[in-house]
Design a protein around this nucleic acid. Structure first.
Lengths: 225, 225
DNA sequence: TTAATTTTGTTCAATATAGTACAAAAACAT
DNA sequence: ATGTTTTTGTACTATATTGAACAAAATTAA
């Protein structure tokens, strides 16, 4: 039962000294630092602990490895968005949680601010590299759709006005995410970006957005003045 | 009178075969395409028409040339923002004009979409390169302040609510600009980004924002329904 | 016309990088 | 134990790239 899904019988020859998932994770870190073009295969070799021929055998060339790193990051990003927006927390809180979760990635505890891997590295390559451009575009759209789904639910639940446009608002919410992704790498402080995110949430959700934190769970969504 | 300001008397030796301003402009184009790391000195040499020794003599190394290109672009960007927001056009119109002016740069008439030079190339380098990071941060702030100044005027003129926070709104308006900068390079259509910009303008200016385009120049800023 | 000055253009050396070839090593199958 | 298979690790080649050296060219000053 397990042999057909996970382990294809038994691997025949010398066992690999690395775990593919881990290797891609470490390669991602390397690309994240210097970007795609400035990251040499030697740097990737050192980051993954694999020597160059093993890298080629396992992933193909540098480009293929980068695409694999993008795929992995995009999937994790979408999962993080869904996790932040998932359970039935009020919309402003959920959005703030999403932005905080992003900032936690953009400001690693032990290193300098690095921003978003996708935006911080793929945007540069996207101009001349069709595969990167399409992966980047698809990734951004995937994030959009995760947010849009939550906003659609919010509209259905009355958390948003009846005439609200979830798709358009998702575009704005994504724009806030993008500015965080950029500015964290550009040297802005985490506190400043939290404030930007909060301002964005307030604008998206309307003036009635909670301000005191956990206090007003049962806030009113007034429509008048 | 002119000798001390523009032309320092007369240049002594062989005249240069290039104009520094033009050379930086062409170098900018080259960097814009492939990014900083992937642009070789040979590519810069070809783009500028200068051979490598002349490049070194004129600007120093590749890094210094890139910084000069960033400076020039940032100054032009600020000028474009001020021009778009300058005269006394209503706020929503002015913001849309700013975004349109940005999109005109991001989608060159004769080439593929290229996005924003600053965001499309400097963000990647910013992580490990202090000078680029500081220039990028200063550039983004310069743009912010241009927008914020207009929003402050808008508040004084009653175009924004009395309790509006111009600085915070400028952060949002910049975020919209950033998302356009990214997404244009990521393959999004210009029409889609114009719609995103319009949605952002509407949210920033309030529901009373104009919708009909050039038709309602004399719209009312009603407070009611 | 001659000297001085600055830029240009060719050439070269040093290094880095990508990609591959090939032998050694570590496992399984018989 | 012996052979087969797959991965590892070293070494090598080809190319690209940076940065500088140096002679030729174009101009002004005397």
């Amino acid at each position: 039962m397990r042999s057909s899904t996970k382990t294809p019988a038994k691997p025949r020859g010398r066992p690999r000294a690395y775990e593919p998932e881990q290797a891609i994770a470490h390669a991602t870190e390397a690309f994240w630092h210097a970007g795609y073009a400035a990251t040499s295969l030697d740097a990737l070799s050192e980051a993954t602990g694999m020597n160059r021929p093993s890298l080629y055998a396992a992933f193909g060339d540098k480009h293929a490895l980068y695409l694999a790193a993008l795929d992995r990051y995009i999937a994790a990003g979408r999962a993080a968005i869904d996790a932040a927006l998932g359970d039935d927390v009020p919309l402003p809180r959920a959005l703030k949680r999403m932005y905080d979760s992003a900032l936690a990635m953009y400001y690693p505890p032990d290193d300098d601010a690095r921003g978003c891997f996708l935006i911080g590295t793929a945007v540069t390559e996207a101009k001349d590299d069709v595969e990167v451009r399409e992966k980047l575009g698809a990734g951004l759209r995937l994030f959009d759709h995760g947010i849009e789904a939550r906003l659609q639910r919010a509209k259905a639940l009355g958390e948003l006005d009846a005439d609200a446009d979830p798709a358009a608002l998702a575009g704005i919410a994504s724009a806030i995410l993008h500015t965080l992704a950029l500015r964290s790498r550009a040297g802005d402080s985490r506190a400043a970006l939290r404030a930007t995110a909060a301002a964005g949430v307030q604008l998206i959700c309307g003036k009635a957005a909670e301000k005191g934190g956990a206090a007003n769970r049962t806030r009113k969504r007034s429509g008048g003045s």
